[in-house]
Amino acid sequence: MTTATSKTRSGAWSGYLFVLPYLLLFTVFLLAPLAYGFSLSFYRRELLSVVPPKLIGLANYSEALHDPYFWKALWATLRFVALCVPFTMLTALSLALGLNGLKGRLQTVLRAAVFVPTVLTISVAGILWRWFYNGEFGLFNAYLHYINIKPPWLTSTGMAMVSIALMTLWWTVGGPTVVLLAGLHNIPPQYMEAAEMDGAVGYRRFRYITLPLLKPVLLFVMVLNIIGSFQVFGQTFMITRGGPEMSTRSLVQYIYETAFNNYRMGYASALSWLLFLVIATFSAAQFRLMRER
């Protein structure tokens, strides 16, 4: 009988039987598609077309760089990231600090309230906010009507992405908030006591004690938030369909339409690797910036 402590060769390899089922799935549905997708990005591959796949080198990539729709989608995505990330981080930090000051039960209940929107599926959240934002009978304008303003929530190219970002803040801020709250819980109370003895209270304590100790968690949450924001799809797809005038069509939506409306698989692959490149660049820059400070 083989025991956990035996270190015979055959015993060692037989342990791989544990890993085998996962490795099989991992290889077929993660590693292989990754390699396949990368190679596809150098091909012209059109589904539902009589033209056979053809190696075209970097042509897909150079097409993207000359494609105004690609740039428009990249711009819309960047706008979304720029609107969403700072507001999400500030809100999450404020909520976490506020919750952290509350006693046990109240803290638990309110933490759940802030978190609960994140368990909604995007189609439900989207339907709900579409109704809120509706210009005719939307909930927001029904109330704003009393003070005689009628914001064009989803109908103006300048405003639509702002509305999407506001909805996203509501939908997703719970995750970062609970992670930051856990980070605050992990700060040893001695630090706070020592700070108080030195007369550091209120803002000074926050600035010189809490913030530096929270920095690793903050960085982690921010990077995840940036990566998630670059992948925005469901919100715009459900609420605006990318309109008006494509002002909210994100890169992921453009990739989706290229692949599954136009069946240009090669070009869609190239676009998705460009998205990956953008995300990787931003995350790397983020890590570097935070480490220097």
Partner: peptide, 16 residues
């Protein structure tokens, strides 16, 4: 592979 955004897999997984 935790760093790989899901969209990159969409097209190749669809074809597989």
């Amino acid at each position: 592979t935790l760093m790989v955004p899901g969209q990159i897999l969409l097209v190749p997984v669809y074809l597989i």
